[in-house]
Design a protein around this nucleic acid. Structure first.
Length: 430
RNA sequence: GGAGCGGUGGCAGAGUCCGGUUGAAUGCGCAUCCCUGCUAAGGAUGUGACGGGGGCAACCUCGUCCGUGGGUUCAAAUCCCACCCGCUCCGCCA
């Protein structure tokens, strides 16, 4: 969430920044400001009453110790009256606090200055395109992956639907092995600088709030009511809460983690969209990179590192891709700046979002209460967070199958994957 | 699911029975200084977070915080109630 003090001291700048998002991003600012003024004035009155009660109570103790019970009784009566007043005032202040917190939790992050302006997807800026030449694709590559999957018996959407319903996927045989190989490759590629984590995939409400997935996007997540647990939509959720309520030493930053998990999304707003193949599913595999950094400079360096690593992986897999700088109108609510990587899938002729690399400023870390302290320094500062997909696998598999389909219908295995597939150089029909 | 124990500062850990100058002993860590040819060891001093108000600032001041939320009381880390979480043992189980 945003820093209330920043809203208070520089409301115009915050308003201008939020306005770049369009929609109702600035809706609650005025209410927050108004409540904040009342909160501070009433809060000061309440604190003052409390101070008086405290002082009187101490004197009661002292007088009783001296055996002067009449004087003590008098102070007790006085304090009791002040206490009643304090209670009424306190209830009002608490109500205001709760409302401000709720409004702050629902207010999105301010886009970074570097984030391009725009109102929607169409205004996103393509930073670069790598390895894409539309004329270079042969007819054999113009086959959508769902047809390839059926032909080779490596994807089985029909049976996935029988088991779990529409928008679930199933990999079989070499398909399952290819997926596993890619996951393992990407974990191995990042082990040099990122500690591997295998986090829980069911998490508590607080954990979902920390990243910004609650309270605003409740409909997007699976919730197990009986136990009040949420199925994570991305490993970003548990990884961000890894250091929740902790004070980290600045010397230990940045802390970097990589995690492979299943991800679960209800896709409530997307029913009926991209229902074929691997483009959109309720459950999918993803490897996520996350960094907790000491400030903007360190965080941006981390964001660049994550992007470079994701790009490197796509190049190793022999895929074409482009890097897109999301505009202010298309930015996720918690993000300050996001780069998407889209891999080109020649069979369905689509650019598929396979990675999303975001810098959150201190927005998530403030929600999660992750702070750091300079060595020997006084006080603490809120950390910055960065995360990005090392890769979202279903779409990467889709682009891979379509890109590497050979004229004989088999799928070429690129050299980096061969060690993970017992040296196989191609995937054929069993 | 049953039984027992527990949740206190950056960390470890007293205090809770018997409510009151306890924001909290002590140790570790950390910072500054002293000692020392360097290092190690040693000595001295200091060191919680969050919010409000004041000051150019060092800082001063008020409040909150001992798992969470209620309650009792003039006064709660300490008493009462509910809940959450953790650990150990038993049961069940991949």
């Amino acid at each position: 969430m945003l820093d209330l003090r920043r809203i208070r001291t520089d409301p115009d700048a915050v308003r201008a920044a939020l306005a770049r998002r369009g929609g109702d991003a600035t809706a609650s600012l005025d209410r927050i400001l108004e409540l904040d003024v009342r909160q501070r004035s009433l809060g000061a009155q309440r604190d003052d009453l409390r101070a008086q009660v405290k002082r009187l109570s101490k004197n009661v103790g002292r007088l009783r110790a001296q055996g002067d019970s009449d004087a003590a009784e008098a102070l007790m009566a006085e304090s009791r009256a002040l206490g009643d007043e304090e209670k009424a005032l306190g209830a009002e202040v608490d109500a205001i606090d709760a409302e401000v917190r709720d409004l702050l939790l629902r207010t999105p992050n301010t886009p970074s200055d570097d984030c391009p302006d725009g109102t929607g997807e169409a205004d996103n800026v393509v930073l670069r395109t790598e390895g894409y030449d539309p004329a270079a694709y042969g007819e054999h590559q113009r086959v959508p992956h769902w047809d390839i999957g059926a032909e080779l018996g490596i994807l089985d959407g029909e049976r996935a639907a029988k088991i779990s319903g529409s928008m679930f996927t199933m990999y079989r045989g070499w398909g399952a092995r290819l997926l596993r190989a890619m996951i393992q490759l990407s974990l191995d590629r990042n082990a040099d600088a990122y500690e591997e984590i295998r986090p829980p995939t069911l998490v508590r409400t607080d954990t979902m709030i920390s990243t910004g997935h609650l309270p605003k996007f409740e409909d997007e997540a699976y919730h197990m009511e009986r136990d009040d647990l949420w199925a994570i939509p991305t490993a970003e959720v548990p990884l961000t809460s890894l250091h929740r309520d902790e004070v980290l030493a600045e010397a230990d930053l940045p802390r970097r983690y990589v995690a492979y998990t299943s991800c679960f999304r209800r896709e409530a707003g997307a029913a009926g969209r991209d229902t074929r193949g691997l483009l959109r599913a309720h459950e999918f595999d993803k490897v996520e990179l996350l960094a907790v950094a000491a400030g903007a400079e360190q965080a941006i360096a981390c964001q660049e590192d994550v992007l470079a690593r994701s790009e490197g992986l796509l190049r190793e897999l022999g895929l074409s891709y482009r890097v897109v700088d999301l505009c202010s109108g298309d930015l996720g609510a918690s993000a300050a700046r996001t780069w998407d990587i889209e891999a080109y899938a020649p069979g369905c002729d689509l650019w598929l979002e396979v990675s999303s690399v975001s810098w959150f400023g201190d927005y998530q870390a403030r929600r999660a209460n992750i702070r750091h302290r300079a060595t020997g320094g006084k006080g603490t500062e809120v950390c910055h967070t960065v995360n990005g997909s090392a890769m979202g696998w279903p779409r990467t598999v889709a682009a891979y199958l379509e890109t590497h389909r050979q004229p004989d219908g088999t799928i070429a295995v690129v050299p980096v994957l061969q060690p993970y597939l017992q040296g196989a150089t191609a995937i054929g029909p069993r």
